[in-house]
Write a protein that binds this DNA or RNA. Sequence first.
DNA 1: GCCAACGTTGGC
DNA 2: GCCAACGTTGGC
Length: 155
Amino acid sequence: MNYWLMKSEPDAFGIEDLKSRPEQTEPWDGVRNYQARNFMRDAMKVGDGVFFYHSNCKVPGIVGIAEVASKPYPDPTQFDPDSKYYDPKSDPDDPRWILVDVKFKRDLDRVLSLAEIKEHADALGDFALVRKGNRLSIMPLTEQQWNYLLELETS
DNA sequence: GCCAACGTTGGC
DNA sequence: GCCAACGTTGGC
């Protein structure tokens, strides 16, 4: 089992939106970064743990827990000319952008803000979120990092 | 294949 | 709203 952190802007799609979806599940569309895509395409497995992270908002941080709910499949928005994620260069016979479905599990008891997480940078070791200038929207965590953050939640 | 210009992310 | 970081694009 692998562990992930996935960012979303709550103004566009927050954890409340995920919770209100049918089956509390949503295709994680719109990822247009190769590194993030590769994580979904090559490494994610159904049942993997996901920290749901709110970015670009008043208090950025981890707000809940979700899980990977599908195998990887082509992101349909890349072929939709009306979508803001439309990519005319993507070949339907060899889709460029891949996604997985994400399913809500639970809210955190409290938000683990980025500021608080940064205070634990030493304990978290080499965690992409606390590295300067990181813009990756999907990143892996080790089991140790995952458990450390869960313990932080109840501390 | 280099790299300047440009666009985007996302914290602050 | 600013701007640092950094990915992408396109001219050469």
